[in-house]
Design a protein around this nucleic acid. Structure first.
Lengths: 219, 219
DNA sequence: CTCTTTTCGTTGTAAAAACAACAGACTTAT
DNA sequence: ATAAGTCTGTTGTTTTTACAACGAAAAGAG
């Protein structure tokens, strides 16, 4: 687990905490490391959660499949990002989505109670972490609202334009890579893949954008 | 403002704080009361926010209108509920949605900094409020994910069934009132009103449910 | 390198939603 | 009580999406 300390140091959760303190806190917060092969589930819908988790290696999707097999990708978790923090409160109920590794991944679990309860001695950075946690969850909240704005768009084209514009803005560049293949992008936007592919090509033919595989350029 | 202390006492934000302490905290947290007539805006998209707010009277919608006039209702704020808490972090950026009074309303504003900074003396309940704030924002997070699940549904019928089922569960009763008229429900689900109305009537004719105005019964 | 599997674009058809327009029921204000 | 305005359901048309099926290109395995 030690080897991930440099990763943890750069997370939003542990912002402002030094490597030495971090090493101490790993014990204090009862950190556990688990690894997952591509395709394995970290959590499944309906489970209970008593942990806050940080992805230290790989990539995860937060998603759910409905009765008919339609998949909906809620969010992507990248290295250094946190997940499960919305279930930190004691009466949070079952988790609503699956969390699945889309690459070989490593996850560190922290005991929620240990984080929320101010500890006795060593960890003077404890209160920093609690505040970090609050800010991080606020940010996630804003991102969820942003995604809701995306999902509220009525047509596939509007969804694509909104999504790609945001990605361009995020990268400060009209050219950028998206973290999805076509099927995943369709699942993220909740549309049919072939219809989306069709619409993308129409937009390309109209001169709105160009793309090659996952690299897009807005014109 | 005093007259709203009983309301505040029952909010999730001030859970566990007595009325006397609350009276003190109002000053400590620099509470301000504002009232709004039906239809007035509390916040507009693009503004900055340095407050956490509690609705003490009336009803609000968090919504946004796109370029073509399509309205999307993100959420409803009822008496005793909080809003704006996702912008408590210092670098939260502009707010993404409008907040509008759908009834004559009263809102109490609290200074975010005063809440997050532990105060000197009187307010021994300060840390309670900070933890309440964290739990409340976690819950809102879960609700946003739930709404995303709704929006991910591909057809109007599926959206309706999901929404109405959740409302029934929330009320522990197959018969319940919804807080929307038809146009608002359509805006909440991001579908066309007439198409939705049509679908509702088809579902009624198929014997799935009955309704009269805002009162629905699932069968 | 060859074979297999996955990804992506393309097409045609069927289903669903958006849109527009309108009439009747219900509300609200005067 | 009347008139004006709003809300809701209904219908027909147009647009968009979903679905299914397939071939070519790309990626991965042996």
């Amino acid at each position: 687990m030690k080897k991930y300390i440099p990763v943890l140091k750069n997370t939003k959760l542990f912002a402002g905490v030094g490597e030495e303190e971090l090493a101490l806190m790993l014990g204090c917060l009862q950190a556990r490391l688990c690894t997952y092969k591509k395709g394995e589930y970290v959590f499944k819908q309906g489970e209970r959660l008593g942990n806050i988790t940080v992805l230290t290696e790989g990539k995860l999707h937060i998603q759910s499949d409905d009765y008919w097999g339609n998949r909906s990708i809620i969010n992507v978790v990248n290295v250094g990002e946190m997940f499960g923090e919305a279930y930190a409160a004691p009466d949070s109920g079952d988790i609503l989505n699956d969390v699945v590794a889309v690459e070989d991944s490593a996850v560190i679990f922290f005991d929620v109670k240990k984080i929320l309860t101010v500890c006795s001695s060593a960890c003077k950075f404890h209160s920093t972490v609690v505040q970090n946690l609050f800010f991080a969850i606020s940010e996630k909240n804003r991102n969820l609202v942003r995604k809701l704005g995306l999902m509220a768009k009525r047509t596939t084209r509007e969804k694509l334009i909104s999504y790609l514009s945001e990605e361009a803005k995020k990268n400060n560049n009209g050219t950028f890579d998206i973290p999805f293949n076509r099927q995943q992008l369709a699942d993220f936007l909740s549309v049919d893949r072939s219809a989306m592919s069709n619409e993308l090509c129409k937009m390309r033919d109209e001169g709105l954008l160009v793309f090659k595989k996952n690299k897009f350029t807005l014109l």
